[in-house]
Amino acid sequence: MKGYTIVDWSAIKVVIFDVDGTLYTQSRLRKRMFYALIKHYALRPWQAKDLMILQRFRVEREKRAGYAGGNLEKAQYEWCVEKGGYSPLKVRQVVEQWMFTFPNPYLAQCTYPGTHSFFAKLKSKGIKVAIYSDYKAHDKMLAMGLEADLIVSSTDPEIDRLKPDPTGLLYIAKKLQVLPEQCLFIGDRQEMDGECAIRAGMPYLILDKKPFNKFNFYQQLEHTLTVPITA
């Protein structure tokens, strides 16, 4: 657990979560996606270049961490077009299908143990829940059966930045009328989520990536919320 070793819950009014790799295990989802992709393209080998589009889309986004060049929603597809020679429409169709639509039915099976209970505990304590993801997150949250007071993604016009630019976190704090230091950001990558929180002046935690059947990060965190901190 990186970031703050002890959370002073008396000072926290909002908990902000990253989504991919933070609320669900990506390794488990990727296994299910792998077999689905193989089955789909084995019957349609002439469409196999779609897999290259998906890979290129991710690579180009990763290369532009902290992007603040404007119109991110459109630019993310254009990066893939420039490097691969694909049409913008084709790139958008492939990404929408395989990254933002097809995985959703599998997310409930991949949601980390203890997530729903921790969300419920936060609500019972009057602590608001917000989401900040580099990708669109509304449908993912719905698929996992999780609710938040505010859901924000990097491609939203109000943000238009990629992590670790802190704009998204600062926007959430302002929108929910709290100070950055009254928020706790939980993510899964120090170089992205941790750095984003540091730049925003916000407390943060990086979850422990244990095997799915041994994952207890949220159970442990919920326990610290239940038990008062003593000097």
Rank of each mutant, 00 (worst) to 15 (best):
L107D: 07
T115N: 11
T111V: 15
F100V: 04
L122V: 11
K128T: 13
S124K: 13
F118C: 07
N104W: 02
Q97G: 00
L122F: 02
A120M: 07
L89V: 13
K90D: 15
H116I: 10
F102S: 09
F119M: 09
Y106Q: 08
P113L: 08
H116P: 00
V91I: 09
F102W: 14
C110I: 03
G114Y: 05
T101R: 13
Q97N: 07
W98T: 12
I127Q: 08
V95C: 09
Q109F: 11
T115Y: 08
Y106C: 06
V129D: 09
S124C: 10
C110T: 09
F102N: 08
R92C: 06
V94L: 04
V129K: 15
V94Y: 07
N104S: 06
P113V: 12
A120P: 01
L89H: 15
V91W: 05
V94N: 02
Y106T: 00
F100S: 07
A108E: 15
W98V: 13
P105I: 03
G126R: 05
P105D: 11
M99V: 11
L122M: 12
L122S: 06
P103K: 01
L122W: 01
Q109M: 13
L107H: 04
G126V: 01
Q93G: 00
G126H: 02
L107Y: 08
P105H: 04
Q109V: 01
S124V: 07
L122P: 05
P88I: 08
Y112H: 08
L122C: 11
T101I: 14
V95I: 14
T115S: 14
K128C: 06
A108N: 12
A120V: 00
F119D: 03
F100E: 15
R92S: 11
G114N: 02
M99G: 01
V129Q: 15
N104R: 12
H116D: 04
K128W: 00
A108V: 15
K128Y: 05
R92D: 07
T115W: 09
V91F: 10
F118G: 00
T115P: 08
S124L: 12
P103D: 03
N104Q: 12
A108W: 11
W98N: 11
A130G: 15
P105E: 10
V95Y: 03
P105Q: 08
T111D: 07
W98F: 14
Y106V: 00
P105M: 05
V129G: 05
Q97V: 07
S117Y: 06
R92A: 13
F119S: 00
A120S: 13
H116N: 04
P88H: 01
Y106G: 00
K90Q: 12
V95G: 04
K121G: 08
A120G: 10
Q93W: 11
P105A: 11
N104D: 08
Q93E: 15
P88G: 04
P103C: 02
K90S: 10
F119Y: 11
H116F: 10
K123L: 06
K121V: 07
